[in-house]
Design a protein around this nucleic acid. Structure first.
Lengths: 158, 158
DNA sequence: GTTTTATCGTTTCAAATGAAACGTTATAAG
DNA sequence: CTTATAACGTTTCATTTGAAACGATAAAAC
């Protein structure tokens, strides 16, 4: 009797597919409309919630690789969307914040992202949405127990 | 009034993190215990359900890039885990199937993968698990409507 | 005060990625 | 039959990736 492993019913596989599809659909949007790659969008959105932040703050908040954050920040600074200033009391740190243009762009991007999410979640009732969050949170907490603290949480884990 | 985009409460972001964590936790297992990379595991598990398959069958079933499938298949054949034979009626197609060693390995890997999943899902009740599947399915169906048919569904979307 | 040790962000480098080009085989059109 | 078109899998090549090395700064140990 062969082991009954149905890939379609295997959570890691399904989760990966769903995540890819959602990311792709959304990424297409901000790529085409705002010229932002996903890493850039992540950094940008993180700064939308709190400013100023250091690169390392962003690494912690997004679970992105620090090299990737460094590159994304550079591109955003080059595009004129972010200001990068040295921290007055600790020269190792950067003080990253929106430039005027960055702030403008954010006021356009953020509502669109929210609207898109709302549209996506419109197939669920309010109760179901709450349920989804709760379930995902429980799973994330559970799986975190298995991950060695040192693990990289890299991006392209297929 | 700034747009209220809470990244922690933004589905694409949360989904990505959860998917990464789950993949990482599981990948660590088959990497260490069986020497399989994630793409290899995907191909391998797909063949566990149906044999023989062509490379293209695997591409369709897994949403992986065809170049990636090609490389994973090559490694698995080199490792002696798969047999690769030409299709008798269509020489463009491969007939991929487990070798004896591959079949043996599968009987070890698959139950472990299932046991791991079971352990992960043990934080949810049976009803909650059913709910999770249903919610994910609805979301996936919804988001599929947004993705242009031609889109690549690539892996390293962040 | 001097010497470790740790932290931050960048850069380097080898590996992985995927879009496009390719050779080969099959199918369709003429 | 011949030619054009499509499908399959591999390979090429430019890009992305992240782990490790690095320089610079700060904190801790002595």
């Amino acid at each position: 009797m062969p082991p009954d492993l149905q890939l379609n019913r295997f959570l890691p596989y399904r989760l990966n597919i769903l995540s890819k599809k959602v990311s792709l659909a959304l990424a297409t949007r901000y790529q085409e409309r705002f010229g932002l790659s996903i890493p850039e969008w992540r950094v940008f959105a993180t700064l939308g919630q709190e400013q100023p932040l250091s690169s390392n703050d962003i690494v912690e908040r997004t679970a992105m690789d620090k090299a990737k954050v460094s590159r994304a920040v550079n591109r955003l600074v080059e595009c004129g969307l972010l200001d990068r200033q040295p921290h007055p009391r600790d020269q190792r740190l950067l003080r990253l914040s929106f430039s005027a243009r960055g702030r403008d762009l954010y006021t356009q991007v953020a509502p669109e992202a929210l609207a898109w999410e709302k549209q996506l979640l419109s197939v669920l009732t309010e109760a179901e949405r709450a349920q989804l969050w709760a379930l995902m949170e429980r799973l994330e907490q559970r799986v975190a127990e298995e991950i060695p603290a040192s693990a990289p949480l890299s991006d392209s884990l297929d």
